[in-house]
């Protein structure tokens, strides 16, 4: 307490430890609100899938399982690079920190590019809800539309979180490149990591729930 106030210690805190614990707790509380934010969408998914299992299976079958799988691998890999970025900061390896952050950014960008191609394919196939929506199996046209409404709402919200994540990442790269983070002070990297992993977890649920339902009785034939 009697030591000089370190430059990275904000005025409202007494110690770096207090500052770090506050930041971590704050980030977790933010993630809790994110859980409930996405929770509303998952609730809608559960309700409508429970009512229209066939329409959901048929809709799911229109999604590209390969691209979905590739994106899953990309995102989990980006979580690994992000975890390594935090590790590098904790062990004072500044160059590695910058490298891992850049790698995380590139993987995140790759995810969004693939997502973009998926979206445009859906547009061409008239699978975007609205006046142009047209489902191959006419009998379940209306109900399949809800599947795609939720598909776009859920993956769209997830993609938006990715975009926000990439912006934050770019914003963190500057101080990282200047060597501002070290084993004493790396709250921003750590908190950003928590956010990034959370976005990954959302996708871990979205991938099976959207891409993999009813594959056995459609796909096996």
């Amino acid at each position: 307490m009697s030591t000089a106030h370190p430059a990275v210690l904000h005025h409202q805190f007494d110690t770096l430890e207090q500052q770090k614990e506050s930041a971590t707790l704050g980030m977790w509380l933010f993630l809790v609100q994110e859980i409930l934010f996405f929770g509303g969408l998952f609730m809608a998914y559960m309700l409508y899938r429970w009512r229209d299992p066939q329409a959901f299976a048929a809709g799911s079958h229109e999604l590209d399982i390969t691209l979905g799988l590739v994106n899953t691998v990309i995102l989990i890999a980006s979580s690994l690079t992000m975890a390594m970025a935090v590790h590098s900061a904790q062990t004072d390896k500044n160059k590695a920190l910058v490298r891992y952050l850049v790698a995380t950014g590139i993987l995140g960008l790759a995810f969004l590019v693939i997502k973009y191609f998926e979206y445009s394919a859906k547009w061409e196939h008239h699978l975007v809800p609205g006046p142009n929506f047209h489902f191959p199996e006419l009998a379940i046209d209306g109900r399949a539309e809800i599947f795609f409404s939720l598909y776009f709402a859920m993956t769209g919200m997830h993609a938006l979180h990715m975009v926000v994540g990439l912006v934050l990442l770019g914003w963190l790269l500057v101080p990282a490149a200047r060597g501002r983070f070290n084993s004493q002070y790396h709250n921003p990297i750590e908190c950003f990591g928590l956010y990034w992993h959370f976005v990954d977890i959302v996708w871990i649920f979205l991938f099976p729930l959207l891409y993999l339902i009813g594959r056995h009785y459609h796909g096996a034939v």
Partner: peptide, 12 residues
Amino acid sequence: TAITVAVAFVDL
């Protein structure tokens, strides 16, 4: 991830 994709194609 591999298991979850593989299992999706098996009727359980």
